[in-house]
Each structure stands twice: as C-alpha cells, then as structure tokens.
C-alpha cells in the first residue's frame, strides 16, 4: 500500500482550513506549518488570475531528505510508504531541510509560548509542549488519525472537498482514478523524488 493525496486546485478556495485544522490537530508550535497554502498570481493587469496552492510534505518515494539524514531519524514507513521523522533520534543538524526541494520541513527551536514572557496558554500547555525542541518536524499524513481509521485532518476538514486521500497502489482508489482522469501532476518532477502528493489542474 502507498498512501497518497490528490489536491484539486479547481476546488481550492484558499480558505486556509487545511492549515488551521493541521495546526489544531498537531498542536504545532509557532512558525511550524505541516500544511500551508501558497497564493500564486498569473498574468498581468487586467488579465490576472490567482491560484491557491496548498502544500505539505510530498511523502516522496525517493526522498532526498531521508538520503541526506545522517542519523536515520528521517525514514519511510515500509507498510504505507509515508515519510516520517523519529524525533528521539534527530540531532537537529537541519540537513534534511536543505535537501527537501519542497521546503516542507521546519526546525523547532522554539521557546514554546506564543505570548513569550507571559508563559504558556492552556492550549500550548496541553498541545505544543508535547513536541521536542531542537528537532526537525513535518507532516506525517496524520499517522495517529489514520491508525484510528480517520482521514488526515486537512482532508477531513477541507470544506470544498478539494483534498482526496487514498491508496496510490490501488488502481481503483479515488486518488488513482482522479490522477488518471484529470491528468494529475506533481511539483518539481525534474528533481526525481517521485512525490505522492498530486495536484489536479485549476
């Protein structure tokens, strides 16, 4: 099995629901975004269009981050092909961040309080402090949710159903079908990383 995601750019309205639900799900500290939404403009006035490009870890089949990691902290789960980080092993050298052509890895060197000297909020106390400092963090396709039989938070909370999640190894899955029928494409195919996050044209 190989988990993959398909993001329909025609349906995305740039509401940032994925970004917020991800932060709520994982309690990620300030400055760390497992999911982001980029705005990209095309054309020149008066013929200008804007495209929203949601990005996250591409869970590549040939991930340069895993190859570059000196400790084995970055690894691929053999059972589902997702790329993950073992925070108990990571030394915080940040090599993987520079190896990733998609800039979807973040370094957590936070003092984990949004309001600084005023200390942690109850939410921070409950959620963000679970994360180790001095390590690199990234999306893991919501492994905990998947193990509980749920979809990743960004998929489940997308109000326009722009995100689809499924098994790319199964030719009958919704993701495989969408990629085939609507000419799904990946970002930076020239980098040879074989991403498992696909986009459908706007």
């Amino acid at each position: 099995m190989k988990w993959g995601m398909v993001i329909d750019l025609k349906r995305c309205v740039g509401c940032y629901g994925c970004q917020l639900s991800c932060k709520a799900e994982h309690g990620t500290p300030r400055g760390i975004f497992f999911a982001r939404v980029l705005k990209q403009e095309e054309g020149q006035y008066p013929t200008v269009s804007q495209t929203f490009l949601p990005v996250l870890c591409n869970h590549c089949e040939d991930p340069p981050c895993v190859e570059a990691c000196p400790t084995g902290a970055s690894f691929i789960w053999e059972d589902d092909g997702t790329v993950d980080i073992d925070h108990d092993i990571c030394v915080g050298c940040r090599t993987c961040m520079l190896a990733c052509p998609y800039s979807n890895r973040y370094f957590n060197d936070n003092e984990q309080a949004y309001y600084g000297d005023k200390g942690q909020t109850p939410f921070e106390n409950a959620r963000t402090t679970q994360h180790q400092e001095g390590v690199v963090m990234k999306c893991n396709f919501c492994r905990d949710r998947r193990q509980a039989g749920k979809e990743p938070a960004c998929v489940a909370n997308c109000p326009t159903v722009a995100r689809h999640f499924g098994d790319l190894d199964d030719p009958t899955s919704n993701v495989s079908r969408l990629i085939k029928e609507r000419a799904g494409f990946v970002l930076h195919p020239d980098k040879g990383t074989k991403p498992n996050v696909y986009y459908l044209p706007a």
């Binding site: 895993v66 090599t95 390590v135």
Partner: peptide, 19 residues
C-alpha cells in the same frame, strides 16, 4: 547541532548521507 548529546547517532547512515 541542536541536540549534540545525540551526536553518535550520526554514525548510522554512512551508506547514503555525506554528513
């Protein structure tokens, strides 16, 4: 390194990692 106490972990991946 942000976690220098784990430096010996860096011996693990010599087959793929130049670091």
């Amino acid at each position: 390194l942000a976690r220098p106490e784990r430096v010996l972990n860096m011996m693990q991946r010599y087959k793929t990692s130049w670091v």
